[in-house]
C-alpha cells in the first residue's frame, strides 16, 4: 500500500516534467540523461548524484539550465527546500522566463520555485511587439516583469543616438511606452536598435536587452521658397528717361550769372568785362548739353524697393513657416518596429 502510494506520488511529480516538454526530457549529455531517468524512476538521491557528476562534465548552456532544474526538482521532492530554491535561482538566472504550471506540478516544487523567484533579481517576459506608429504621435509598448523592487532604467540605443525611456523604481509587471523620438527630439533612422533594461537593487543588478529593427519611413519635406509665385521682385533702380532739364538748368544758371553781372556792373567803371562770363557761360551751356547726352544715373525706385521689401518679408515669413512644418514632419516619421529573436539577460 505504502509502496503503491509512493509510486503514484512519484508519478505525479514526474508527469509534469515530461508533459511540459521539460528540459529533463531532452538532455544532450548522457550522464544528465541518466540522472533524468533516475528522477523519473523516483530515485531522487541517485538523480542528484548523477546530475552532480554531469555538472563536472562539459555542459552546454541548455544542459546547464536542465541540470539546475533537475536539482531543483529532486531537492524539492526530497523536501530540501533551501537547496531546491538555490537550484531554481540558478535556473532563473540562466532562463529568466522559465515558469512552472502550478496546476500540474507538485506544490512542493512550485513553492520552492516561487521562493527562488522572490529572491532573485531578474527581468522576465520582456516583450516588445511588432508595430507601426508615427513618431511623436504613437508609441511602442515595452512590457516586462521584474521579480523584486528595483530601480529600472530603460533605454533605446542605436546608430542614431539613444533615448532614456524611463528611469524609476518598479516591481512586478511594468509597462512603458517609447514615443519614437530620440534624445535629440528626432526620430531614429532605419537600423538595428536595442531596448536595454537595467534593474538595480542593492548589490544585485540585472540587464536585459531586446534587439529591434527600426524601419523609418521617408519624410516628405517642403522645399524652401526662393520667390513667391506671382510676386516677382522688381528692379530697385530705374533709368530715367532722357531729359533736357540739364540744359535748362545750365542755361538758367548762366542767365542768372550773366544777368546779375550786368545788373551789378558799376556804370562809373564803364561796364564790365564780357569775356569772362561769355567763356564760362558757354562752357556751362556745353556742360548742360553733355549732361543731357550723358547716360543718366540709375535712380532708386522707392515704390519698387518698398514692394520688394514686403515680398522679401513675406518670403522670409513663409520660409519660417515651411521650416517649422518641416521640423514637425521630420519628427513625425512612420516607424516600423520588428523585434529580433531572443531577449538576452545577464546579472
Amino acid at each position: 500500500m505504502t509502496r503503491s502510494f509512493m509510486l503514484a506520488f512519484g508519478a505525479a511529480l514526474a508527469i509534469p516534467l515530461s508533459a511540459l516538454g521539460s528540459p529533463l526530457t531532452a538532455q544532450e549529455n548522457p550522464t544528465l540523461r541518466r540522472a533524468s531517468q533516475a528522477y523519473s524512476g523516483l530515485s531522487y538521491v541517485e538523480a542528484i548524484a548523477l546530475a552532480r557528476k554531469a555538472s563536472r562534465e562539459r555542459l552546454s548552456p541548455a544542459d546547464q539550465a536542465r541540470y539546475y532544474e533537475l536539482l531543483g526538482f529532486a531537492y524539492a521532492s526530497l523536501d530540501s527546500t533551501r537547496q531546491a530554491t538555490e537550484a531554481f535561482k540558478q535556473v532563473l538566472m540562466l532562463n529568466p522566463d522559465r515558469g512552472l504550471d502550478a496546476t500540474r506540478i507538485s506544490p512542493k516544487i512550485t513553492s520552492s520555485f516561487a521562493l527562488a523567484l522572490a529572491q532573485v533579481l531578474v527581468l522576465r517576459e520582456v516583450k516588445v511587439d511588432s508595430t507601426e506608429f508615427v513618431a511623436g504621435v504613437g508609441s511602442l509598448p515595452i512590457r516586462f516583469h521584474v521579480t523584486r523592487t528595483a530601480r529600472l532604467r530603460t533605454r533605446i540605443v542605436g546608430p542614431s543616438g539613444q533615448m532614456t525611456v524611463d528611469s524609476a523604481l518598479g516591481e512586478g509587471a511594468v509597462s512603458l511606452a517609447w514615443n519614437g523620438l530620440l534624445a535629440n527630439g528626432l526620430p531614429p533612422e532605419s537600423g538595428t536598435y536595442r531596448v536595454m533594461i537595467e534593474a538595480t537593487a542593492g548589490r544585485d543588478s540585472y540587464a536585459s536587452a531586446v534587439t529591434l529593427w527600426v524601419e523609418a519611413g521617408t519624410v516628405d519635406t517642403l522645399p524652401h521658397l526662393t520667390g513667391l509665385p506671382g510676386y516677382d521682385l522688381l528692379p530697385e533702380t530705374v533709368m530715367p528717361a532722357r531729359s533736357w532739364k540739364p540744359v535748362g538748368l545750365a542755361l538758367m544758371a548762366t542767365s542768372l550769372a550773366l544777368g546779375g553781372s550786368l545788373a551789378l556792373e558799376s556804370s562809373k567803371l564803364g561796364g564790365g568785362g564780357r569775356r569772362e562770363i561769355l567763356t564760362i557761360g558757354a562752357g556751362a551751356a556745353l556742360v548742360g548739353v553733355l549732361a543731357t547726352l550723358k547716360k543718366p544715373a540709375p535712380a532708386p525706385a522707392h515704390a519698387n524697393i518698398l514692394y520688394n521689401s514686403l515680398v522679401r518679408e513675406q518670403l522670409t515669413r513663409r520660409n519660417a513657416e515651411i521650416a517649422a512644418e518641416n521640423a514637425t514632419r521630420r519628427r513625425q516619421v512612420k516607424l516600423g518596429i520588428i523585434p529580433q529573436p531572443a531577449a538576452e539577460g545577464k546579472s
Partner: peptide, 28 residues
C-alpha cells in the same frame, strides 16, 4: 557783392572733372 557761376563735367562718376568758374565782384 559777389556772383559766381561754376560748371563742371567729367567722365564716369566725375572723379576727374573739367571745371569752369566765373567770379564777378563789385565793392563800392
Amino acid at each position: 557783392i559777389e556772383l559766381g557761376l561754376t560748371a563742371a563735367y567729367g567722365p564716369g562718376s566725375g572723379r576727374f572733372r573739367l571745371t569752369g568758374d566765373y567770379e564777378f565782384q563789385r565793392i563800392d
